[in-house]
Design a protein around this nucleic acid. Sequence first.
DNA 1: TATGAATGAGGCTTCATTCAT
DNA 2: GATGAATGAAGCCTCATTCAT
Lengths: 239, 239, 239, 239
Amino acid sequence: MSDKRRRRLPRDVREQEIIDAALQVFSKRGYHAAVVDEIAELAGISKPMVYLYLGSKEGLFVSCIRREADRMAATFRDAAQAAGDSPEQRLYAGLTAFFAFVSERRDSWRVLHRQAPEQGEAIAAELAAARRAVMEEVGGLVMHGITEAGSATHLDEQDADYVAHALVGAADALTDWMERHPGESPDRMTQRLMNMMWVGMRNVLGGEIWLPPAGTVGVGKKAPAKAGRARAAVPKTAP
Amino acid sequence: MSDKRRRRLPRDVREQEIIDAALQVFSKRGYHAAVVDEIAELAGISKPMVYLYLGSKEGLFVSCIRREADRMAATFRDAAQAAGDSPEQRLYAGLTAFFAFVSERRDSWRVLHRQAPEQGEAIAAELAAARRAVMEEVGGLVMHGITEAGSATHLDEQDADYVAHALVGAADALTDWMERHPGESPDRMTQRLMNMMWVGMRNVLGGEIWLPPAGTVGVGKKAPAKAGRARAAVPKTAP
Amino acid sequence: MSDKRRRRLPRDVREQEIIDAALQVFSKRGYHAAVVDEIAELAGISKPMVYLYLGSKEGLFVSCIRREADRMAATFRDAAQAAGDSPEQRLYAGLTAFFAFVSERRDSWRVLHRQAPEQGEAIAAELAAARRAVMEEVGGLVMHGITEAGSATHLDEQDADYVAHALVGAADALTDWMERHPGESPDRMTQRLMNMMWVGMRNVLGGEIWLPPAGTVGVGKKAPAKAGRARAAVPKTAP
Amino acid sequence: MSDKRRRRLPRDVREQEIIDAALQVFSKRGYHAAVVDEIAELAGISKPMVYLYLGSKEGLFVSCIRREADRMAATFRDAAQAAGDSPEQRLYAGLTAFFAFVSERRDSWRVLHRQAPEQGEAIAAELAAARRAVMEEVGGLVMHGITEAGSATHLDEQDADYVAHALVGAADALTDWMERHPGESPDRMTQRLMNMMWVGMRNVLGGEIWLPPAGTVGVGKKAPAKAGRARAAVPKTAP
DNA sequence: TATGAATGAGGCTTCATTCAT
DNA sequence: GATGAATGAAGCCTCATTCAT
């Protein structure tokens, strides 16, 4: 990026540089508002090169998604490996890695999770895949952690999925929050979150559950399920 | 939509119909990818009417945001009023209302919370305002509920803000989950969430806290705060 | 213009009011940039009335041109009648009337003389006619005045036309000048102009002529006419 | 214009060609009625090129103005240099150059002097600047010429400005006239004008002045200045 | 007489993409 | 490998004009 007259880079390197640039621009503007010219300029090359290497704007975007999703997965794997064997440690390490990733690689996260929907077949599919991958990663962590931690083994995939969604959703939202509170670190974010969810989770798994206060009337029109005595934190649904 | 030759509606009505259409399209496509022609067609009128009544694409968007933010706020207020006096009841009612709103008015929610944030001055401001309003609503609920429920009074605004973000983030993500699990109702979603967060919250407020397992090493490079023995669920930071 | 809910005016009156408004707007914006909405609003009525009465934007413009050209002609005639019999007096009165008209009715003058060319058949024709009328009026004044004043009778129509053009052009340009020098009055403008042109004119007609200084080389590429000893102020050309 | 498949011109050249085309179209239609498509077509390229090189319709217009104003100034300077030292010669050369320019570059002149003045901030400013430049050029010529020629030195800037306006206005109007009289050349036009204005000027400067014929009554309502015995051709005003 | 509601047509501008060197 | 030159296709917005009451 320093030398302006840099030429004749090997294809691999160039390609990565282009994706770097694309990631920034897509993150800053969103897919539609992003302009290929800006990406090319930021990458320090001419537009035809972009098309030669990545094929199209959509190709650019897909490449970003793939690379960053892979990176994120790798980050997770590394963190989990580095952590000890205890599920709790792994979950902690995983969540911390998540926050670290999101806070250090804002662009990646934004591109992975903040894109307006429905930008065409290929992109939608790619995004869905990437998000599913993240969810599975987190879901695995959660499932593993909880199953081990609580006594209960009734936590099936659906529940883990639910929890994973809640976790990721919360974490995602907390990303913004973290951004506006500079004193916070990924570690502290994880602790906060664990305190908020994990402790409750554990207790709930031990049998303590929450029920709507007596005399409460459902508000949602669709609310049909009279949930009786919900047995667990994430009670079974009768699909 | 029924009568194709429907004409001459009074301005107020048409305006609302246009906003209805715009909401759908913005929700489906996102701000940039949305095309005014499609909105006009969906509203059953010609483009110039859209511009005559709403001024510009941006004006359209802002109108959507405003109307839906107001609606959401109203929904909250109504739910809170209908609920009993107990903070727990209010929180339950509020959250249920939230899920009901989000699940019934997917478009509204998507437009309010799933837009890439950088679309120009006016829009960014409007979105920020709308989101802040929601956060405050939820944050109030949380703060009130928790303060009363737990013995602790150390939950300051920042903490409430944090929790509100986590809650809203989780709820938002769970929206997608709910969509893929047709048996779920807003009531059940609330119960799930309360079980996951509230119970833990309450216990944590009672003194039980979570700390990273011994021997764990922080992952995030920036992680500075050696959190010592965090005293509470959402411990004070020394900025 | 005061009463906003004024209705049911007789057609003639309304029509004039509309033309008043149109004149202002056309003057301020020019034909193309003028917008019928603005005219209607300024006239205090709805657009359909404008079309009912004047037919089209072009119709509006033509009506303005006609009315203002007529007014200008009338002003001239009145001024000439009010003046004494002497050609000099008539010329003086006429020019003063011209300046007075232009300074008092800026809008009229602008619409008559400052429109971009070629706005379609009808308008071009109308403008040409209006301008020709003014030229003839002034040309007549000039011709009459000069013929009487000087001894010469060799001032034919072409010469008068030439002088009229110069006069009107100068006067038109001086209009802007006058606008920026508030102390000036039509009378003074006339005196200035007479001093500048008339005195010279008269002398020239008496035989004194101007010739290019010796040794001067024509600059214009097309300049063919070796003007020999131009005999008169406005020497005959051999077409 | 000859080869229809002419492609790949270097930017500088294309840019000038585009401005050439724009000048024609703006001259023929006026700023507002001009259509960018027509300019592009005339330039033999597609519209995006126009925008790539000149930015906007306004940019196109401004470029025209600037280039032509500069050209005109250059023409003047060259003419003045080529002329001898005598002020009279310079004035003569300057005016001839003026007529030559106006007659040979009708489009330039029309764009510089026949545009409705209110087309938005930037354009108004640019036009004003260009016109002021021309005025100053001519004004300088006049001032220099007259001051030297007459005995009087009382011709201040305001007077020169006045005369310059009159001259330019007359010349501008005479342009149309010249167009309809093919036998005329810039030289002859200059001679005509000099005869009409210069001779008078000179005499007036020598003391001969013109006053309104006795018994004349001012016509303009605003006419305040009872001009007494105006001392000079362009008498001082007392405000 | 008078108007609120409505639109076809067209102009400015942008952008993803390709061509020719 | 690399790029300056070029464009088809579309999107936002405006405006003269008419319809139905």
